[in-house]
Simulated assay, not measured.
Amino acid sequence: MSTPAGSSDPDQTRRDIQHTRAELGDTIAALATKTDVRTRLRTKTTTASDELRQRVTQAGQSAKTTAVQRSGMLSQKASQYATSVKQKAQQATTAMRGSAAGGAQTAGKAGSNLVASARGVTTRIGSSVRAKPKPVLAAAGAIATLAVVAYRRRRPR
């Protein structure tokens, strides 16, 4: 009340009362807000959850960006490695084909030489057996007898 004591202006007194009532109403509203714990907690919870959602969204976007970048790098490296392996495999295949062709020619020559040599030995043995059959038969009988004796000695009784 801003009116001095003894002032008798009723309009001024009414204005002072209205002003005091408005101030008192504001003070009560402020006190009610401070004492309303449930509403304050809801406000804090809402604010915290909004901040958390924002952080999670940013982290997700950051992780997605990083994953896309790394995926591209890995794909590029894998492609380069595959190309390198393919080239090395082609070189090795070419070298093996050349080696195999040379080896086949050498093996073919050696095989035909071996076959010719075996035919020559067989022919010589056949002609010597026809010329002197008794010594060959005696030698074959002696070898067979030795084989039977050796077999009986080794066999457990």
Rank of each mutant, 00 (worst) to 15 (best):
P156S: 05
V149N: 05
L114F: 02
T27A: 07
A100V: 07
A59Q: 06
M73S: 08
D50K: 11
S7L: 10
T123Q: 13
A22N: 01
V121C: 02
A30G: 06
A139E: 13
G111F: 03
L137Y: 08
K132V: 06
K34T: 07
H19V: 00
A92G: 07
S75Q: 14
M1D: 10
T65E: 12
G120N: 15
K88P: 00
T13K: 08
I143E: 09
R97V: 03
Q80L: 15
T106V: 02
G60M: 12
A48D: 12
A78I: 07
A32Y: 03
R130V: 05
L137F: 13
Q18F: 00
S117T: 14
R124W: 03
T65Y: 10
A67Q: 12
K132Q: 06
I125C: 02
T13M: 03
A150D: 11
L74N: 09
T13D: 10
K44Y: 11
R155W: 15
S71D: 09
A110N: 15
R155D: 07
T57S: 12
T45L: 13
I143R: 11
Q87V: 12
A118V: 02
P156K: 08
A142T: 14
K44G: 05
V136A: 13
T46Q: 06
V148G: 04
A95L: 04
R53A: 10
E23V: 00
T57A: 13
S62R: 13
N113A: 15
S2Q: 09
A131G: 08
Q91W: 01
T123R: 13
T43I: 02
D16N: 05
D26Q: 00
L24I: 06
T93Q: 04
T93V: 05
S112M: 12
L74G: 04
I125N: 02
T145K: 15
Q18E: 07
A144W: 03
T123F: 04
M73N: 08
V136S: 06
A101T: 15
P135E: 01
D36V: 00
A140D: 01
Q90T: 09
G102F: 01
A142C: 03
A138W: 04
T13N: 05
T94F: 01
A95N: 01
K34S: 11
L114S: 08
V129P: 00
G111D: 04
P135F: 07
Q91F: 02
K77A: 13
Q105Y: 08
R15E: 09
S84Y: 05
G60Y: 02
R155H: 14
A107C: 01
Q69W: 03
A150V: 09
R38W: 03
T20I: 03
S49I: 13
S71L: 05
Q69G: 12
Y81T: 15
A22K: 00
A131Y: 06
G98L: 09
V68C: 03
R14M: 02
G103Y: 04
G120M: 04
D36Y: 01
